[in-house]
Deep mutational scan, measured.
Amino acid sequence: NKFNKELQWATWEILNLPNLNEEQVKAFIDSLRDDPSQSANLLAEAKKLNDAQA
């Protein structure tokens, strides 16, 4: 389904953001699992944090 694909994509993207530490990655992945419908928003937040920590 749509959420499953978005969840998989967001998870992959977050795992590959180079500037997030392990705790941050875990927190984003946990949030994705808690509410897959928020995957686009969570991915945007993760990318923003990744850029800020570059």
Rank of each mutant, 00 (worst) to 15 (best):
E23S: 12
A10E: 02
I14L: 11
F28Y: 06
E45R: 15
K2P: 14
E6V: 07
L15P: 01
N19H: 07
D51K: 12
V25G: 03
I29S: 03
D51M: 14
K26I: 09
N4Y: 11
N19R: 04
V25E: 02
W9A: 12
I29L: 13
F3A: 14
P36A: 05
K2R: 07
L49S: 03
D34R: 14
T11E: 03
K2S: 15
W9T: 05
T11S: 05
Q24M: 04
E13D: 04
L17H: 03
A40S: 10
K48T: 06
L7V: 13
L7R: 02
P18A: 12
L42A: 04
K47F: 13
L49V: 09
A52W: 09
N50R: 01
L15S: 09
N50Q: 02
N4W: 15
D34L: 11
D51E: 12
E22H: 11
N16F: 04
A52E: 11
V25P: 00
K26Q: 08
L17M: 10
L43H: 03
K48A: 11
N21Y: 10
N1A: 02
W9Q: 11
A10R: 03
K5W: 06
A27P: 02
K26W: 13
E6T: 05
K47W: 14
D35L: 06
D30L: 15
N41A: 09
I29W: 03
Q38M: 09
A27G: 10
F3I: 15
Q53N: 08
I14H: 01
I29T: 05
D35K: 09
Q38L: 09
L7M: 06
Q38D: 10
D34E: 12
F3D: 15
L42E: 01
N21G: 08
I29F: 04
A46D: 00
K47D: 02
F28W: 03
N19G: 05
T11I: 13
N21P: 03
Q24G: 00
A27E: 07
W9R: 12
A40G: 06
K47M: 14
S39F: 15
A44G: 06
K5T: 10
N1G: 06
S39Q: 05
A52H: 10
L20P: 00
I29R: 03
A54N: 09
E23R: 11
A44Q: 11
A10V: 12
P36K: 02
S37I: 05
N21V: 06
N19W: 08
L32E: 00
D30V: 14
K5G: 11
Q24T: 04
E6F: 15
A10L: 08
N1V: 03
S39N: 07
D34A: 14
D34M: 14
L43M: 07
K26T: 07
